[in-house]
């Protein structure tokens, strides 16, 4: 079962902003090739950091309000939210190595 949960605008507050662990948001679109190419790395990272970092997906076409809130100009865009604040942001097809380097400081009480 996928650990990448799709969130809607209605769920965003509870699932992301009020989360007691850091959350990685994957802003994606169904027409985006690099978004699809990132999925295996994201699925594995979600398993790797299960219980330490939550992973959610936001479809920018379905949930434009969230995309606008974070000024998402292209996909994929990834934003790490900690205590309700955006603390890290990167865009484009991301390698698994880069993903791990960015997320590991937020895992297990880091940062």
């Amino acid at each position: 079962m996928s650990l990448l949960k799709d969130v809607t605008t209605a769920e965003f507050e509870a699932e992301v902003l009020a989360s007691n662990i850091p959350v990685l948001i994957d802003f994606h679109a169904v027409w985006c090739g690099p978004c699809k190419a990132s999925v295996p790395a994201l699925e594995d990272a979600a398993r790797e950091f299960e219980g330490e970092i939550a992973f959610v997906k936001v479809d920018i076409d379905q949930e434009p309000t969230i995309a606008e809130r974070y000024n998402v100009q292209g996909v994929p865009t990834f934003i790490v939210i900690k205590d309700g604040e955006a603390v890290e942001r990167f865009s484009g097809l991301v390698s698994r190595g880069k993903l791990a380097s960015v997320l590991e400081p937020f895992a297990e009480g880091g940062q």
Partner: peptide, 18 residues
């Protein structure tokens, strides 16, 4: 590339593709 190799392929088989 080296960071992409550093995964347990039993739990993270997508590392091979990445």
């Amino acid at each position: 590339l080296v960071l992409s190799l550093a995964w347990d392929l039993e739990e993270a088989p997508g590392a091979a593709q990445d």
